[in-house]
């Protein structure tokens, strides 16, 4: 992960949730509105991000690097990278999405939200509950009313595997 110092490029340290440190060029993190403001206003050299798992941070830094290298000639390659990028278990994808939202990396947020939406496409209510780990908080009467009103919502794709 760590990149060597070349010329006068500014170096920044990001600290993930499990105290793992990531050293990278400051220019890379400017893609994040949140970090950009922090760097510009406070001139910090180390930013703690305790709410983001290191595993998630590794992925996001990988994206920032690829995105910084994006030119008109490797557009196709970048598209493939993006596709691979979201091709992870849904739990991880949700972690990434939440972190990206927090960091305010707008282009990537759009892409992640679309990827999550594609994953839950046509899934039944039960499957969606399992995926997002939600317990129904409706009364049995309300629940049965839903089942009566839109039976197909409970018959759809029951598959909650999302890999």
């Amino acid at each position: 992960m760590a990149s060597s110092t070349t010329g006068e490029k500014k170096i920044l340290t990001l600290k993930g949730g499990d105290n793992e440190e990531f050293i990278l060029e400051e220019s890379l993190v400017l893609q994040s509105e949140l970090l950009k403001n922090m760097v510009k206003e406070e001139r910090v050299s180390s930013i703690p991000l305790p709410s983001i798992k290191s595993k998630t941070l590794v992925k996001i830094i990988e994206y920032l690097k690829k995105h910084a290298e994006l030119t008109p000639s490797n557009k196709e390659e970048f598209k493939n990278f993006e596709k691979e990028f979201v091709n992870v278990v849904l739990e991880e994808l949700l972690d990434i999405t939440v972190a990206v939202n927090y960091l305010k990396i707008n282009g990537l947020l759009e892409f992640c939200c679309q990827a999550v939406a594609d994953r839950i496409k046509d899934k039944s209510v039960e499957a969606v509950r399992k995926i997002f780990r939600i317990e129904s908080d409706f009364t049995p009467e309300e629940e049965s009313e839903f089942r009566k009103e839109t039976p197909e919502a409970f018959e759809g794709d029951l598959d909650d595997t999302t890999n």
Binding site: V98, E110, A117, K121, V128, I134, S136, F138, A153
Partner: peptide
């Protein structure tokens, strides 16, 4: 999952499916 992210995700789902997903919680 912050509310604005859930809204963003759900706004990309088909209308028919959205109507059904009201039954989630």
């Amino acid at each position: 999952l912050p509310c604005e992210v859930l809204v963003d995700i759900l706004s990309r789902v088909s209308l028919k499916h959205i109507h059904q997903l009201k039954a989630v919680s």
